[in-house]
Amino acid sequence: MKRMYLVAGAVFVLDQLSKLYVLSVLNVDRHDVDVFPPFLTFRMAWNYGINFGLFSGHAGWTRWLLIGIALAISAWVAWWMRREPRPLARVSGGLLIGGALGNVVDRLLYGAVADFLNMSCCGIDNPYSFNIADIAIFVGAAGLILFTGERKKTP
């Protein structure tokens, strides 16, 4: 369990520090910053909904609903991982929890999730941005799928 909480804490701190830097030092809220164009650009997007801005039209009540869902899922994953012996499963749980809590803090502080990483390639201009918490949630969820569950016994 210690490993899960360390990973969650590291993801949370990295996510919050990156957002603080991008908003306060680089002022990405006012202009885009080309990091490695066109592959990586810091482009600010305030996400009031869930993935790709879904349900963002109801910012007032969805903010609190999404905070509640993220906290409930985080608590459930922490409870689930108490009995999980596999280290990679616990690391995955930590990634998911740290990312979810990072986005919860954004919703509490700003009313929306601060997304700033934008990646495009090969003539395709990607209109969507994401953040470190989103990456951690995705990788953590994939890891929970891959590294949990009963192993099939081979004859």
Rank of each mutant, 00 (worst) to 15 (best):
S129H: 00
E150D: 10
I145Y: 04
T41L: 10
G9C: 07
G9R: 05
G93I: 03
A75V: 10
D125Q: 14
A133V: 06
W64R: 07
S120I: 05
W46P: 00
I97G: 05
L6M: 13
V25T: 15
L88Q: 05
L20G: 13
G143W: 00
Q16W: 04
L20D: 10
S56N: 14
L66V: 06
P38M: 10
A136R: 06
R63D: 07
V28C: 14
A45T: 12
L23I: 11
I73C: 02
Y48G: 07
W64E: 08
I135E: 04
R63A: 09
W46H: 02
K19R: 01
F147Y: 04
T154S: 13
G57E: 12
R90P: 02
S74W: 00
W79N: 07
I135C: 09
D32H: 10
P155R: 14
V113G: 01
K153N: 12
P38N: 10
H31K: 14
Y128I: 09
G57M: 10
L95N: 05
G57W: 07
S24R: 15
F116A: 01
Y21C: 11
L66Q: 05
G111R: 11
W61H: 05
R3A: 12
L6P: 00
I97P: 05
L88R: 00
L95I: 07
V139N: 00
W79K: 08
D115E: 07
P127E: 11
S120H: 04
G123F: 10
V11E: 09
M44K: 06
R82A: 02
A59E: 13
I97K: 04
W61S: 08
L95Q: 03
N126V: 09
D32N: 14
V7E: 08
G123L: 12
L26C: 13
Y48K: 12
A59R: 09
V25L: 14
G93C: 05
F36Y: 13
Q16T: 11
G123Q: 12
V28H: 00
P85L: 03
D125F: 10
N126T: 08
W64F: 13
N126C: 13
I137E: 00
R3C: 04
D15H: 09
G49Q: 09
D34T: 03
T148I: 07
F138H: 03
A78H: 04
R82E: 06
L14G: 07
V105G: 09
A100N: 09
I135D: 03
G99W: 02
L144K: 00
G57H: 08
C121L: 14
P87M: 06
Y5A: 13
G102A: 08
R151V: 14
G94M: 06
L40W: 10
A8F: 05
I50G: 12
V22Q: 01
A142M: 12
L117E: 03
S129Y: 01
